[in-house]
Design a binder for these strands. Sequence first.
DNA 1: GTGACGATGTAGCGTCACTGCATGGATCCG
DNA 2: CGGATCCATGCAGTGACGCTACATCGTCAC
Lengths: 304, 304
Amino acid sequence: MDPRTLETLRAIGTQGGVTAAAAVLHLTPSAVSQQVALLQREVGVHLTERVGRGLRLTPAGEALAEAAMDVAVALERARAACDEFLVRPQGVVRVSAFQTGAQLLLPALLTRVARSPLLAGITLECTDEDVAQDDFVALTDRMDVVVAHRPDDGLGWAGGGAVEVVPLLREPLDVAVPIDHPLAHRTEVHPDDLRDLPWIAVREGFPVATVLGAVGARSGSAPRIVHRVNDFHVVEALVEAGHGVSLLPRYTFGGEGRVRLVPLVGVRAGRRIDALLRRDRAERLVVRRVLDELRALAVEIGTA
Amino acid sequence: MDPRTLETLRAIGTQGGVTAAAAVLHLTPSAVSQQVALLQREVGVHLTERVGRGLRLTPAGEALAEAAMDVAVALERARAACDEFLVRPQGVVRVSAFQTGAQLLLPALLTRVARSPLLAGITLECTDEDVAQDDFVALTDRMDVVVAHRPDDGLGWAGGGAVEVVPLLREPLDVAVPIDHPLAHRTEVHPDDLRDLPWIAVREGFPVATVLGAVGARSGSAPRIVHRVNDFHVVEALVEAGHGVSLLPRYTFGGEGRVRLVPLVGVRAGRRIDALLRRDRAERLVVRRVLDELRALAVEIGTA
DNA sequence: GTGACGATGTAGCGTCACTGCATGGATCCG
DNA sequence: CGGATCCATGCAGTGACGCTACATCGTCAC
């Protein structure tokens, strides 16, 4: 019953396979396979079952993986109990964020952490991660804090009780039009104003892809999507050049003077930015501190 | 942060030293010493401090030891989660009891466990342990279930949140007198009837040693203790031979025809029999099952 | 059917934790 | 006051365990 082995089992569950689990654990697939084989011998129950050329956890495996998280939490709590006696806790915290979230939050976060003397022991390692909506949770295995976004009205995050969700802020999505567009001088637009316009959307399955659908539903006609581009800077350039209109997040917008952003009313268009982290990682003192800064930063942005 | 190492730290705390901890862990003192040295290097805080030629845990060490129990609990819970998928859980359960408790409970417990087909996988290992009042808790490190007794009115068990206390039953203490004693034909006696009698008590510091003091206090004069004997069979023989009177537990009494047991009224004289077990051990499915049987057995005895 | 991918065994190797022994304080007792 | 004892700790040696690398087998896609 080694916690490492338990964590390995968990990784197989969340990552969906031996090879993927091995990747996040920095091990070879062989090692992972041997670990679960030994674990199964120990508990006397089948924990995995083959499905196609991969495998998944059995109910018993799921149960054990769930319990494994509690073990990890207890362990981190123990470590934190010691850190309380340290003047200044040390450690690296790995933070990932989707591109515009990174742009919005990470520079200020780094500044805040660097400025505070109490956080001097903390080393931040930042990454930007562009993944599909459903894949944000899986990132928590590699990262300590994952800044993710989801449609305003969408459901929460799947992940069982394993991930903690910390709401950071809500960012409205405005309609981006060229500066010479008929709508450019409006102070607000209704979904009805947007009928038959050529849309530039994000790729299917990616966050806020569904928002445009909601706008279309409100106006009564499905939006005409002419391009699918994930990078908002590219989107801005396309809108500026008159190749279509789009929905762009307000706080991250950087196209002033080249593109007009018009608030959308009559439909709730926005995205929620959350911090995702595994329950065990949340116990780490340094992670908690970083999270506090992140939350404070979000409040600052939301009230500005 | 190995759970084994954490358990070692805990053992140093509960057993009060490296050597004692090594004994219960089946290790050499050297190994224990090296483990804590490594652990201290890892957390960066002093966990132990020398006191005389022994050592004790620092506040940080205590905190970590406390957290270590939560880790152990989580681990056992994980193991239990797997056992739920087993038709019949297997494992050995080590039970210890003080002598008369063992006499009263263990035979019937073994019978019950052997009889039930659902408990067929359980192997019971019984021991009798005669220790001072304060040392019962420490036994939980070596045993799964410790049947202990304490004065009726006494305080509970020290042990922080680490040990679970399961009350089993209350056993009255009666006055044991020779069959030809003036009090032998009474249906009950008061403390006042006992003035100036020669008493046979248990050794200082051992369970129920304090009860006699309470009887004396009620009668107004300190009891005259002529012998101190822990083994109740020896006490019975001494009483039978007219060397004094004593307080003997009612359910365990085996001297019918040779010694008279007279109920004592006017003062609350009795002992409580509890099962003590570490919180992590309590999570083990097989331990739970045994504990259920033990509790049912106690109810049976108490209502007989 | 062939190629790619994914899981799983086997051999070899490095690492790590334990035992055994020696050392150095601290306490107890003559 | 000094020898004996107890306890914790450091160091060398050894054994076990878990990892990597490589080979194998089964499954899916084209």
